[in-house]
Lab assay of single mutants.
Amino acid sequence: VDNKFNKEQQNAFYEILHLPNLNEEQRNAFIQSLKDDPSQSANLLAEAKKLNDAQA
């Protein structure tokens, strides 16, 4: 993981990586967004979790 991520951002990265119901395309999009703007990690994680739950 890129060293410019802080602890919260790293946690978001790993959580998104391991959400079971996202397809690869969705997962990659969230990860790319996280890399583009790490400050949005909490929002991105919340969105990813919502999508993950919706696809459960």
Results as ranks from 00 to 15, higher is better:
49 K>I: 06
40 Q>W: 08
8 E>R: 01
6 N>L: 05
2 D>T: 01
47 E>C: 14
40 Q>R: 14
28 N>M: 11
15 E>Q: 09
48 A>L: 01
12 A>V: 12
26 Q>A: 04
27 R>K: 12
13 F>A: 07
17 L>H: 06
39 S>R: 11
43 N>M: 13
21 N>C: 14
39 S>Q: 05
49 K>L: 09
23 N>F: 10
27 R>N: 01
29 A>V: 14
1 V>K: 11
4 K>Q: 10
47 E>V: 12
3 N>V: 08
50 K>M: 11
16 I>N: 00
32 Q>S: 09
48 A>C: 04
51 L>P: 00
43 N>G: 08
47 E>N: 06
8 E>H: 04
32 Q>C: 15
20 P>R: 07
3 N>G: 09
44 L>Y: 07
32 Q>W: 07
56 A>R: 08
52 N>K: 02
26 Q>I: 10
47 E>H: 03
50 K>L: 15
10 Q>C: 15
43 N>K: 12
51 L>F: 06
38 P>S: 05
33 S>G: 10
1 V>L: 07
15 E>R: 05
12 A>N: 07
16 I>H: 00
33 S>M: 13
54 A>I: 12
5 F>P: 15
2 D>L: 01
16 I>T: 01
18 H>Q: 08
9 Q>N: 02
16 I>W: 00
39 S>G: 14
42 A>T: 10
21 N>A: 13
18 H>C: 05
32 Q>H: 14
44 L>C: 07
37 D>A: 02
31 I>N: 03
11 N>G: 06
50 K>W: 14
12 A>P: 01
16 I>V: 06
18 H>N: 05
15 E>I: 02
32 Q>M: 10
44 L>S: 04
5 F>V: 15
29 A>C: 10
47 E>Y: 06
9 Q>W: 15
47 E>L: 08
5 F>C: 15
22 L>Q: 00
34 L>H: 01
38 P>T: 04
53 D>F: 15
7 K>M: 03
6 N>A: 07
12 A>G: 03
18 H>F: 08
17 L>Y: 12
46 A>V: 12
37 D>N: 09
3 N>S: 05
28 N>Q: 12
7 K>E: 10
8 E>Q: 05
54 A>Y: 15
31 I>E: 04
23 N>T: 11
15 E>L: 04
26 Q>N: 03
7 K>I: 07
43 N>V: 11
44 L>N: 02
46 A>T: 09
19 L>E: 01
43 N>Y: 13
44 L>E: 02
48 A>K: 00
8 E>F: 02
29 A>H: 08
19 L>S: 02
24 E>H: 13
9 Q>P: 01
35 K>R: 15
10 Q>W: 15
46 A>I: 05
52 N>L: 01
33 S>E: 15
35 K>S: 07
4 K>D: 15
5 F>E: 14
24 E>V: 12
25 E>S: 11
55 Q>W: 03
31 I>K: 01
22 L>I: 14
43 N>L: 02
11 N>T: 06
36 D>H: 06
9 Q>T: 07
12 A>M: 04
29 A>P: 02
22 L>E: 00
55 Q>C: 15
2 D>E: 05
42 A>V: 13
44 L>G: 01
22 L>V: 05
44 L>P: 01
12 A>D: 07
7 K>P: 15
26 Q>Y: 04
45 L>H: 02
7 K>F: 02
45 L>R: 08
25 E>K: 08
4 K>G: 15
38 P>K: 05
34 L>F: 12
8 E>I: 02
19 L>R: 00
31 I>P: 00
17 L>C: 12
47 E>D: 02
11 N>P: 01
38 P>V: 05
48 A>N: 00
12 A>L: 04
32 Q>P: 00
51 L>S: 06
47 E>K: 10
20 P>V: 05
55 Q>Y: 13
47 E>A: 09
50 K>G: 10
8 E>W: 02
5 F>D: 14
50 K>I: 08
14 Y>V: 09
23 N>R: 14
53 D>W: 08
43 N>F: 15
33 S>N: 12
42 A>W: 08
46 A>Q: 11
28 N>T: 04
21 N>H: 05
12 A>K: 02
20 P>D: 12
51 L>N: 05
1 V>H: 10
37 D>L: 07
47 E>M: 05
22 L>H: 00
13 F>P: 01
52 N>M: 03
18 H>E: 11
27 R>C: 07
5 F>W: 07
49 K>N: 10
49 K>G: 05
54 A>G: 11
40 Q>F: 07
36 D>M: 07
4 K>S: 09
26 Q>S: 08
9 Q>V: 12
15 E>M: 06
30 F>L: 14
5 F>H: 15
40 Q>V: 11
27 R>E: 01
28 N>V: 04
31 I>V: 04
14 Y>W: 11
10 Q>S: 07
17 L>Q: 11
38 P>L: 05
42 A>R: 09
3 N>E: 11
48 A>D: 00
10 Q>A: 08
49 K>A: 10
18 H>P: 01
42 A>Q: 09
11 N>K: 13
19 L>A: 04
30 F>A: 06
32 Q>R: 07
16 I>E: 01
56 A>S: 11
13 F>Q: 05
31 I>W: 02
3 N>L: 01
49 K>Q: 11
45 L>M: 06
17 L>K: 08
51 L>C: 11
40 Q>P: 02
22 L>C: 00
2 D>M: 01
36 D>E: 07
48 A>W: 00
22 L>G: 00
33 S>P: 02
9 Q>E: 08
22 L>R: 00
32 Q>D: 13
42 A>E: 15
13 F>I: 06
20 P>Y: 05
27 R>H: 04
12 A>E: 03
37 D>H: 12
38 P>H: 05
51 L>K: 08
38 P>M: 04
50 K>R: 13
38 P>E: 04
11 N>C: 14
44 L>F: 07
3 N>D: 15
38 P>R: 03
37 D>P: 00
53 D>V: 05
55 Q>T: 08
34 L>Y: 03
50 K>C: 14
30 F>N: 00
55 Q>F: 09
44 L>W: 03
